[in-house]
Design a protein around this nucleic acid. Structure first.
Length: 598
RNA sequence: GUCACCGUAGCUCAACUGGAUAGAGCAUCGCACUACGGAUGCGAAGGUUUGGGGUUCGACUCCCUACGGUGACACCA
């Protein structure tokens, strides 16, 4: 396929040479989309050229426009408005472009493995709490970015690090031991992660009054938090765990299994997956030894009390502790170990992308500098895919404030709304219950994923549970509906006229609505590339919405099956099919499935 | 206190990275319609892009400044 720019390139360079005796590279010209209110398919911004032409923007535009029109067959017309040269391209150019798009089975996708391997980390939950709305943004983002990078030719390894170690786990374990009376997911009917989460809350419920009581006796809050009997017990448990006390380790393993099976069912419902899981309990020791190695090499230094530090003041950062004076690992220690382990596991990895909330920007800045100091060249390219919070109207989402939106609950709610809406329309009467149920889930997830992904990741976003998520307008189901309609039309077309021919002759001329669709399809590769280079799925989401909207406008004003002219009818059918295909392939990059009916 | 990010219609979000008259959806009002799938389409109304300076042919975008909202600055994770 010839891009609009490449169509003009040669003649444009020539034009400037002949008219102004100046040699320019095609990349030096500035193009943009022509605004709707003007005639044209592509616009050259002429302001930058007036220095060369030594005349005003108008005459420059006129002169270049005329030259182009005279020398490029596919340019039918041009106009100059202020400093903008609007160029109109022939219908035959657009028809050829459409043919090229239609023939590519995965238009816009780069061939697999043509770019280096990238590792994408996402989700990475703690094992003491169920997944909530904040995780959902993380998970959908990470999954989508992985798919987008694959579509752009990268090999991708999807991973997560599971924070299965530390005092927070011990809190759940302790509370379960004290108050659980042997409760299990089987006996309680609770999902494993919910059960463990319940005992985490239980711990806090009993722990807080203890702290309060100590403070009332005149103890400082800091001290009271450490001295409360429950906390001391939890600390003892952590020590026992580190000493590999069999009973403690066994309980830890049992409760972790509960959590993992709970998480897995949530991941299945979300339709996301991982290529490899990393566990903090496996990586923190490696982190420790790497830090010690770094100390020997003089990259880090040790204070008198025995703690190990790195000095990043040269880099404009601070000093940072890497290992406590008692020799135990910290959060960053573990991350160092994990990163190194991953580079060892997948030596062809060019860099890692960490999908983690923006509150950890400093942490990752530090981490990448440390990796660099340790001699990992990949550190330069490592990227913190930082995203903003999902805020609730009443205030931020923080588990301690008790305003979490649980992931499983929310998915169930979305599904219920999808069911209601579907039943109102009543189009699914001859579908069996299992298929309906799966469909409602697909639609509910589309609404949810699209809602979370259509916003620029770096921005904080708002989720209002009361108004919930819309199914009309700029939404996932709107796009699904458009897709489903393209299939319905195709079915009916086939009934009446047989399979649509892929290479049917084009009509003599096509209307503006049709051109709009071709142009929207043409824009897909650019949207995909931008999404990949900026790690931003919202580019894909907004593209899908645009394409669906343009198609719907066309559909509303033009007949397809009832069109009598065979060539026109076939062509419109082709447009319909390629639109559907593109929507389906694009939405897949957001992790959104397209149903056959809805 | 220092630093980072954000601030666009009543609300939720866009704006091709410096380009034309800042665009969509929701909500409001009004149309279209035997509709090939109406979870639709068309239109109206809604904006001093938080305020104030600057840079230049041209600023939502870059710089400075004030204000507002987040967040980070632990031998927490």
């Amino acid at each position: 396929m010839k891009t609009k720019e490449s169509l003009l390139a040669q003649a444009l360079v020539e034009a400037v040479e002949k008219l102004y005796q100046h040699t320019m590279n095609i990349n030096d010209f500035q193009f943009q989309e022509t605004r709707k209110e003007f005639a044209g398919d592509i616009t050259l911004v002429v302001f930058p050229l007036i220095k060369i032409s030594k005349t005003g923007p108008e005459p420059t535009g006129q002169a270049i426009g005329q030259y182009l029109k005279d020398h490029v067959a596919d340019i039918t017309d041009f106009n100059v408005v202020k400093g903008f040269l609007n160029i109109s391209l022939s219908q035959s150019y657009w028809l050829q472009t459409f043919d090229a798009i239609a023939q590519a089975s995965q238009f816009g996708f780069a061939s697999a493995g043509s770019k280096p391997r990238v590792m994408v980390e996402y989700s990475s939950p703690n094992t003491n709490k169920p997944l909530h709305l904040g995780h959902m943004r993380n998970i959908f983002l990470g999954y989508s970015v992985s798919e987008i990078l694959k579509a752009n030719g990268h090999s991708v390894t999807k991973v997560q690090i599971i924070n299965d170690r530390g005092i927070h786990i011990c809190k759940s374990m302790l509370a379960w031991k004290k108050f659980g009376q042997g409760e299990t997911p089987e006996t309680s009917g609770l999902k494993g992660d919910k059960l463990v989460g319940k005992y985490y809350v239980e711990f806090e419920k009993n722990y807080r009054p203890q702290v309060k009581a100590l403070m009332e006796q005149g103890m400082e809050e800091e001290v009271a938090k450490k001295e409360a009997p429950l906390m001391k017990e939890a600390q003892e448990m952590l020590v026992k765990w580190e000493q590999k006390d069999p009973e403690t380790v066994h309980l830890w393993e049992t409760m972790n299994q509960w959590v993992y099976s709970g998480f897995n069912s949530t991941y299945t419902a979300m339709n996301v997956d991982f290529d490899k899981l990393y566990y903090e309990s496996d990586t923190y020791l490696l982190g420790k030894s790497e830090v010690e190695k770094g100390l020997q090499q003089g990259i880090f230094y040790q204070k008198e009390d025995g703690s190990i530090w790195v000095n990043l003041e040269d880099e404009g950062l601070d000093q940072k502790a890497l290992l406590r004076k008692d020799g135990t690992a910290m959060y960053i220690t573990q991350d160092i170990g994990t990163a190194i382990l991953r580079f060892n596991d997948y030596p062809d990895t060019a860099y890692q992308i960490y999908t983690v909330g923006n509150e950890q920007e400093y942490h990752f800045k530090v981490l990448f500098k440390i990796l660099k100091k340790l001699g990992f060249a990949q550190a330069d390219q490592c990227f913190h895919l930082s995203y903003g919070m999902v805020e609730l109207p009443e205030g931020k989402m923080k588990s301690r404030e008790g305003t979490v939106v649980d992931a499983d609950d929310l998915m169930a709610e979305m599904k219920a709304i999808a069911r209601e809406t579907a039943e109102e329309t009543g189009k699914l009467e001859n579908m069996d219950d299992a298929a309906k149920d799966a469909l409602h889930h697909t639609i509910g997830m589309a609404a949810l994923k699209f809602f979370l992904l259509r916003v620029d990741p770096i921005k904080n976003m708002l989720f209002d549970p009361k108004s919930s998520i819309d199914f009309n307008g700029q939404t996932g189901p709107f796009i699904q509906y458009t897709y489903v309609r393209t299939l319905a039309i195709q079915r009916k077309f086939t009934e009446q006229f047989g399979q649509p021919e892929a290479n049917a002759a084009h009509p003599a001329s096509v209307g503006n609505d049709e051109l709009q669709i071709i142009q929207a399809l043409y824009n897909w590769p650019a949207a995909l590339q931008k999404a990949a280079s900026t790690y931003d799925p919202s580019q894909i989401a907004n593209y899908c919405y645009d394409l669906a909207r343009v198609y719907n406008a066309f559909y509303q004003h033009n007949s397809i099956i009832r069109e009598e002219d065979t060539a026109v009818r076939n062509f419109r059918m082709q447009l319909t099919m390629i639109t559907g295909r593109t929507l389906q392939q694009a939405m897949a990059l957001l992790g959104i499935e397209m149903p056959e009916r809805m």
